[in-house]
Design a binder for these strands. Structure first.
Lengths: 131, 131
DNA sequence: CCGGATCCTCTATGATACTG
DNA sequence: CAGTATCATAGAGGATCCGG
């Protein structure tokens, strides 16, 4: 008989807790809440993109922050970087399989912001009216 | 015949675009990517919480940031604040109906971080090994 | 075209102390 | 208990220049 506690909880073998500041997953969650990560990952949800195209898609991002964000995502195994040594050089970024599991979640938040923007704006107006 | 473009796209009447830095939804998306918003909203997913309980749930948050985050969420119509004028005063925070539509999305990201932490850590190790 | 290296500026955040 | 007010600071992020 092999009734481990894991067997009773088929999913979510909770060993990490993002609420705990000392848990590594807290740091990871913070990274995912980064200013540019959501937009970059969402943009790559439409397929691979060259550096410049990514910069155009995520309008307003500086070179520095785009590169820095991509490096971190690459290190975390969410994005892969492929260099084509042409002249000039061509660099494509693409979501890894792991990245693809995250993309829909961040994309959903982005969509939520777009869909509910009007409601939030009227909530703000109502709030501000009281003071 | 009433075939408006909206009729052809039943859902997502895209009028906001978070990729556009000048679009209000970009600002909203940035707010949702705030360092504490995800954890606070997720914590309230288990039901209403008093200020102190919230501070305990979202370990590591300072009074200042917790209050500031809650004020913003309240203004944006995601969280409601109820004061019970007892002695000492009791304040409960709760997700609004609008907040409830957002909570599962942020909670999913938090769960993703917890579930995939190990994979990310090994990706980091592999990346760092190459330099 | 891609992005590394610098310099510089703000602002987001924390620590601390105080109040109804 | 649930904040507000103040002060101080790290570091996020932008602008610019340079190089492969």
């Amino acid at each position: 008989m092999v009734t481990s506690s894991a067997a009773r909880r088929p999913e979510t073998p909770r060993q990490y807790d993002a609420y705990d500041p000392s848990c590594p997953s807290r740091g990871l969650f913070d990274r995912l809440s980064d200013k540019w990560v959501g937009l970059v990952v969402s943009a790559l949800g439409d397929g691979p993109l060259r550096y410049t195209d990514l910069a155009r898609a995520v309008a307003g991002v500086s070179q520095k922050m785009l590169t820095q964000t991509l490096r971190t995502l690459e290190r975390d195994g969410l994005v892969s970087r492929r260099v084509t040594p042409s002249v000039p050089v061509r660099v494509d970024y693409e979501l890894t399989p792991l990245g693809w599991t995250l993309m829909p979640l961040l994309y959903a938040v982005k969509e939520w912001a777009e869909v509910h923007m009007a409601e939030v704006e009227s909530a703000r107006a109502a709030y501000d009216a009281d003071r």
